[in-house]
Design a protein around this nucleic acid. Structure first.
Lengths: 234, 234
DNA sequence: GAGGTTTTCGCCTATGAGTCGATAACTAGG
DNA sequence: CCTAGTTATCGACTCATAGGCGAAAACCTC
């Protein structure tokens, strides 16, 4: 029997496949998602996630990176991870299109020049969205909020350097509820997620003691190990 | 401008798309994955995940359920969730095929009649696998182990009723390390994941006090809420 | 230098994980 | 029937980490 080679039939059906990105960022003390107003039917004038097709030479991640380049500078996206693949038959009224969505995060200090049809929308005041995009957005927000608890994913939302007050506001906006600065500092420093620098800052303040400037230790995703509750017996 | 309708062009490239399942279960006190031995090139005689194509009328979940029916009884799969979609250009040497994998769990008491080319393999002694299937398996095992900590996902690995000793062995096998019965009981009962029944059992025992029979409260996935470390300020 | 403002630190509490030994509840053998 | 052996279960303890609050520190402006 001959060895299989390139060009041999694979015998599984093909479908159009698109990639989408749920790009989240904190703007004006609120968690926001980057949306794009469709100019054409279907869902004309409805807000949609950025995305598009996958070229034969691209992997999914490369494809979504390419599509995002038209909206935000690619270097602005500090974190990108796959979310889910949707396959409902009629999610696109024209034809069956499978969609794989990614979660992207942009630090709060970067202010990309957005095209005219593109804007940030608060996730707690979402407009009606095209297709099944709101499902992806909900999943992305849930994923981000969960990971803020047990990973260092905050690095992708925060500026390179920040004060604790700024970080508290950032996390509060992202999580959707207020939290205390004392505990936030303690939890994140004990886990070696953030470290103080030598410097202090006075920007947002009207008098008062200058705040220590902190930074994230790592800029790649790391999981805080013992979020495992059932530990080995010693 | 006319409204878009069925049959209008969508203008994104198509690719063959397959679904795969990483079916995990505890067999003989070890976490195992269901694999079948390929009879044809490519990767002839290598072990592979069950799966196949997606029919035009099927969603991904339905497709993998259908493919699994040939290997294990569908009712045996107590939990099924999407894992990830892989898109490496040459993951199949014949042509570009996208693959979406699911994590499936089978309770330890069900013993499906497996076809001749199909068998359970301990995840800690995996044979070489076909394609990129080992990546999916690693991801599945990591996901299961994480979720054992902060969800009730154990219901999908356990028999309908069990003693604490049996559950301890089950969890120990799934997690890959020993844990204590006392603490396991307390954690799971406090979270209302398991409850004692009225009955007691003596099966595996050689004398001694009969063990209380427990059962899982729910058979759908629920997340133990405050696995969130950063809580709202009160 | 005094008063106002904001950060930061130390000490307290609360909660849930994890350990260990004592006791309960059975079986089997004399 | 009593005793030794075996296993499950419970209660009391330790430990790690989250969370809160007020006092002190460290700046500003007047």
């Amino acid at each position: 029997m001959p060895e299989a080679k390139k060009g041999d039939p694979v015998n599984v059906p093909s479908y159009p496949h698109e990639v989408l990105a749920v790009v989240l960022s904190v703007r004006d003390d609120a968690l926001c998602v980057l949306l794009w107003k469709r100019g054409r039917s279907p869902f004309r004038h409805r807000w949609a996630l950025p995305g598009g097709g996958v070229e034969p030479t691209e992997r999914l991640r490369e494809a979504i990176t390419g599509h995002l380049a038209a909206k935000v500078d690619v270097r602005d996206v500090a974190h990108l991870e796959q979310l889910a693949t949707h396959s409902a038959i009629d999610r696109d009224p024209r034809a069956r299109v499978l969609a794989t969505a990614y979660l992207g995060l942009v630090p709060s200090d970067v202010r990309p020049n957005l095209p005219a049809d593109t804007a940030w929308h608060r996730v707690d005041e979402l407009p009606g969205t095209a297709f099944d995009h709101h499902f992806f957005i909900e999943a992305a927000v849930a994923r981000l909020r969960a990971k803020l608890s047990y990973t260092n994913i905050g690095f992708a939302l925060a500026p390179p350097e920040f004060t604790i007050a700024e970080l508290r506001d950032l996390f509060s906006a992202a999580l959707g509820y207020q939290l205390g600065a004392t505990n936030l500092t303690r939890v994140l420093t004990r886990r070696d997620v953030i470290v103080p620098t030598e410097r202090t800052a006075t920007h947002g303040q009207s008098g008062g003691r200058p705040a220590t400037v902190y930074k994230f230790v790592a800029h790649e995703l790391t999981v805080t190990d013992p979020f495992a509750v059932l530990r080995p017996r010693r």
